[in-house]
């Protein structure tokens, strides 16, 4: 109920509260490392930076747009069918993203295959609609959507960076470390890195679980100790 009251208070267009909506999901309330939502796609699309970037942009768009739409309709949506209405809004936007991506970048569309469609089942989106957009103004819902989308995207890109670098020796397809001249560090010639080989585990899905686990540990143990309840 407290959230509703905050929303009703007249506030500046971009005041302290609005800023908090945008910044909070990046750290204190990160959807992946703190709320542990949206893990499915974080495992599946983080083998390459390129995939993770497209996925993040898609989720940011769907989350912000569905938050705004739900917020605009929040007083006319019948309470009894609100979940269904939210799901229809999400599914529509995801289909729009899928059709647009198929027209804009067919190769990435092929690579992401079913995972674009699976944004519908991403708990972050449904969670934000139900918990935030149903009780807040469109502008605040928009900021909340962007914030949570960014929080999701940052972790996705971080995991993809680690997995692509150690799994394939590249970042965004650009060679960093590998056994021929196309790479920045050429392991077949360098005296220092001659022992280096790509870690095949990093390409497989379980590695994302390990990487996310370690990220959560670093996040709570070093970056933001206030997250740990010491009582």
């Amino acid at each position: 109920m407290s959230e509703v009251k905050v929303a009703e208070k007249k506030s500046a267009l971009f005041g302290k509260n609005e800023k908090k909506l945008l910044i909070d999901p990046l750290n204190d309330n990160n959807p992946i490392t703190v709320q542990v939502l949206g893990i499915c796609s974080a495992l599946a699309v983080t083998t390459l930076m390129n995939k993770a970037l497209v996925m993040s942009i898609a989720v940011i768009f769907v989350l912000a747009a569905s938050n705004v739409l739900t917020s605009l309709l929040r007083n006319s949506i019948p309470k009894q069918v609100r979940m269904i209405v939210q799901l229809v809004i999400i599914a529509t936007l995801v289909t729009v993203v899928e059709l647009a991506l198929k027209a804009l970048d067919y190769n990435t569309f092929k690579e992401l295959s079913v995972f674009i469609g699976l944004i519908i089942t991403n708990c972050i989106i449904m969670g934000r609609l139900e918990a935030f957009a149903m009780a807040n103004s469109p502008w605040r819902a928009f900021l909340d959507g962007i914030g949570n989308g960014l929080g999701y995207g940052i972790i996705l890109l971080l995991v993809a960076f680690i997995r692509e670098l150690f799994g394939k020796g590249t970042v965004f397809g650009f060679g960093i470390i590998g056994p021929d001249a196309g790479y920045l560090i050429n392991t077949s010639e360098s005296w220092l890195f001659g022992w280096y080989a790509n870690n095949n585990l990093m390409v497989l899905f379980p590695s994302a679980m390990f990487v996310i686990g370690v990220l959560i540990w670093i996040h709570r143990g070093i970056v933001n100790k206030s997250l740990v309840d010491v009582s």
Binding site: S76, P78, K79, Q80, V81, V85
Partner: peptide, 10 residues
């Protein structure tokens, strides 16, 4: 909301 409204909305 009334049932009628819900059906129309959907």
């Amino acid at each position: 909301h009334s049932t009628n409204y819900i059906i129309r909305f959907v």
